[in-house]
Design a protein around this nucleic acid. Structure first.
Lengths: 106, 106
DNA sequence: TATAGACGCAACCATTCGGTTTCCCAATTT
DNA sequence: AAATTGGGAAACCGAATGGTTGCGTCTATA
C-alpha cells in the first residue's frame, strides 16, 4: 500500500478537502456538507490524508476536527524545485539570447 | 477518464520518467533501460503523460523522442500557491509574536 | 526487396481505488 | 438509563490502474 503525498493529492475530492481545511479545522460531517458526498466517503479520504501526515486530527468531545499539516505540503514544493531550477535556467538563457539580439540590432 | 497533472504525477514511475526527461529528450527504449520495466509499460506511462500535455514527442527517423513540457509543471506550482500564501502568513504571524516577546524582554 | 528494430495500440489480468452499506463505539441529551 | 448523534472500521462492488503479451506499422539497413 503506497501512501505518499502525490498519491494523496491525485484525487480531486481530496484536493478540495485540503483546500477546505487549510484555514480552519473541520469535522467530517461539516466537510461532507461542502460536497455532494457522504460522511463515510470523506472519512475514508481523511484516513488516507492522515496516513501520509497531510492532515492531523484533534478530538473535541465526540467531535473530531481535522486540519491541514501545512508543513507537509512543502514536500511537493521541494520536489518541484528541481524543475523550477531548470525553468529558471532556461529563462536566463532566453534572456541572454534576447540581449544578444538587442545588441545585434544596435 | 480523468486525466490531469495530479493524477499523472501520482505514479512513482511516472515521476521518475519526468525527472529523467526533464533535461534531455529520450526514446521509450532508453527510458525503459533506466528502470527495470518493459518498453510497453513505459510507453503507456508516456501516453498518459502526453495526454495531459506534460510531455511532448518528436519523431526522428524511426525513433520518437519524448521530452518534458516544463511549462505544464507550473500548474502544480500555481496550485501550491494558495498554501504558500498561508504558510507565509503564518510565518509573518510568528515573526510578530517573536518580536513582541523580544520587546517584552526589554 | 526482405529483414530487423522502434513503436503504438488493443486485449487481457490481477490489483487497487472510491463509494456505499452496515455495524459498532463513545459522548451528549432528555 | 435510554435515545440520539458524531464518527471509525469492515465488507462489498463496480470502475480504474499498471503491467504483460501479441500484433500491426513504419523506418532503416543488408
Amino acid at each position: 500500500m503506497r501512501r505518499d503525498i502525490f498519491q494523496a493529492i491525485a484525487d480531486p475530492t481530496r484536493r478540495a478537502i485540503i483546500t477546505l481545511i487549510a484555514l480552519q479545522a473541520m469535522t467530517p460531517n461539516a466537510i461532507a456538507e461542502n460536497f455532494n458526498t457522504t460522511r463515510q466517503s470523506v472519512s475514508k479520504h481523511l484516513r488516507i490524508l492522515t496516513e501520509c501526515q497531510l492532515v492531523k486530527q484533534e478530538q473535541q468531545g465526540r467531535e473530531i476536527y481535522y486540519s491541514l499539516q501545512l508543513e507537509k505540503m512543502k514536500e511537493i514544493d521541494k520536489w518541484l524545485d528541481q524543475f523550477r531550477k531548470i525553468w529558471e535556467a532556461r529563462f536566463n538563457q532566453l534572456d541572454t539570447v534576447l540581449s544578444t539580439i538587442k545588441k545585434q540590432k544596435k
